[in-house]
C-alpha cells in the first residue's frame, strides 16, 4: 500500500465518528453577538432581551459522543429538572444554584456575572447535565472618575432623560491597525441598573474613527433629521452592524436605536439606546428622546 493511501484511510477512520453538533448555528451566533458587543463597547451593552429571541433551545450534552451530537433536541429524558435562571449571578452563586438542583455549571467566558446560559432557564434537562455559563467581562473604567459622567471625550451632555445616571463605566480605544482616530464611550442607566446593562450609551469618535457616522449619514435606509442646523441619522442598528429604519428589526435580534451626527469636522457622536429601554418607550418616544439628547450635546469647554 502507498503511504498516502494508508494515511487517507487512517485519517478517515480517525474522524469517521465525528459529527458537528446540531447546536453549532446557535453557538456561532452567540459567539458573534459576544464579538460585536466586545468590539463596540468592550462589555457594557449586554442585553438579556437580545438573547431571548435567539437560536434553537437545545440540550447541553457533553461533547465527544457522537450519539449526543446526533440526538434530536426532543430526546426523551428519564429524570428531568428545570434549568434555573442564573442571570446576573456571580459564578459561585450560579454554581451553587445549579448544584442545588443536581446540575453542573461550566464557565465558558468572562468574570463578573452571568449574562447568558445554555440551556435557557425553564428548559427541562436530565440531572447531572452541564449548563454552560457565559459571564460578562470585567468592565473597564478607562477614563477614570467622570463625576456626573456628562463630560467625556471632548463633549458635554446638556440633557439626559430623567432617571438616568452615569453608569461609572467608560472605555477608550484607538482605530484598528493605527489608521488613526480615537473613540470614547460611556453609558447611563437607572440607579438600580444592573452591572453590564445600559439605558443610553454615547460614543465619541475623533478624526478617522468617525468614518462610520459619515457613511451612515449618506446611506439609504436611515432617517435623516435636522438637529438645529446639524444633520443627523436615526436608525436601528443590528448586532452585526446592519442599518435599518427606526423601529425596524435587523436580523434576528432586537436592534439598537441609534442617532449619529458630526459635532465638528473631526468629531462624530453616536447615541444609542438599549433595546430594553426602547421597547418600554415605543418607536416615537425613542426617536424623540434620542434627538433631544443629541441636541443637548456640545463640545466640552
Amino acid at each position: 500500500m502507498k503511504v498516502e493511501e494508508g494515511l487517507a484511510e487512517a485519517m478517515a477512520a480517525r474522524v469517521a465518528d465525528v459529527q458537528a453538533p446540531s447546536t453549532m448555528g446557535g453557538s456561532v451566533r452567540r459567539r458573534h453577538r459576544r464579538h460585536v458587543i466586545r468590539f463596540r463597547v468592550a462589555g457594557a451593552a449586554l442585553v438579556t432581551a437580545a438573547l431571548a429571541a435567539g437560536g434553537p433551545v437545545v440540550l447541553s450534552m457533553s461533547s465527544g459522543s457522537s450519539d449526543a451530537a446526533q440526538a434530536p433536541t426532543t430526546a426523551k429524558i428519564v429524570t428531568e429538572v428545570t434549568v434555573p435562571d442564573l442571570t446576573d449571578m456571580t459564578l459561585a452563586e450560579a454554581q451553587a444554584a445549579l448544584r442545588a438542583v443536581g446540575l453542573v455549571g461550566e464557565k465558558l467566558t468572562g468574570h463578573e456575572h452571568v449574562f447568558d446560559q445554555e440551556p435557557k432557564p425553564g428548559t427541562e434537562v436530565s440531572t447531572s447535565s452541564t449548563v454552560k455559563l457565559y459571564l460578562v467581562e470585567e468592565r473597564p473604567q478607562t477614563l477614570g472618575d467622570l463625576g456626573d459622567g456628562r463630560t467625556f471625550g471632548g463633549i458635554t451632555l446638556g440633557y439626559l432623560p430623567e432617571g438616568l445616571v452615569w453608569s461609572k463605566w467608560s472605555n477608550k480605544w484607538s482605530g484598528k491597525k493605527a489608521r488613526g482616530g480615537t473613540s470614547y464611550t460611556t453609558s447611563y442607566d437607572t440607579p438600580d441598573g444592573r452591572p453590564g446593562r445600559y439605558g443610553i450609551q454615547v460614543m465619541v469618535h475623533e478624526g478617522k474613527a468617525g468614518r462610520q457616522v459619515e457613511a451612515r449619514l449618506k446611506r439609504d435606509g436611515v432617517e435623516l433629521v435636522d438637529l438645529g442646523g446639524r444633520q443627523a441619522y436615526v436608525a436601528n442598528v443590528g448586532e452585526g452592524g446592519e442599518v435599518g429604519k427606526p423601529g425596524t428589526q435587523q436580523g434576528r435580534e432586537p436592534s439598537t436605536p441609534t442617532i449619529g451626527f458630526k459635532l465638528r469636522d473631526d468629531l462624530a457622536v453616536e447615541v444609542m439606546m438599549s433595546p430594553d429601554r426602547a421597547e418600554k418607550l415605543g418607536v416615537e418616544a425613542v426617536s424623540t428622546e434620542l434627538q433631544k439628547i443629541a441636541q443637548g450635546i456640545r463640545p466640552a469647554e
Binding site: M24, S27, V28, R31, H35
Partner: peptide, 11 residues
C-alpha cells in the same frame, strides 16, 4: 476552534 472560525464566516 471551528465555532470561532465560523463566527468570522458569519460576520
Amino acid at each position: 476552534l471551528v465555532q470561532h472560525a465560523l463566527e468570522k464566516v458569519y460576520r
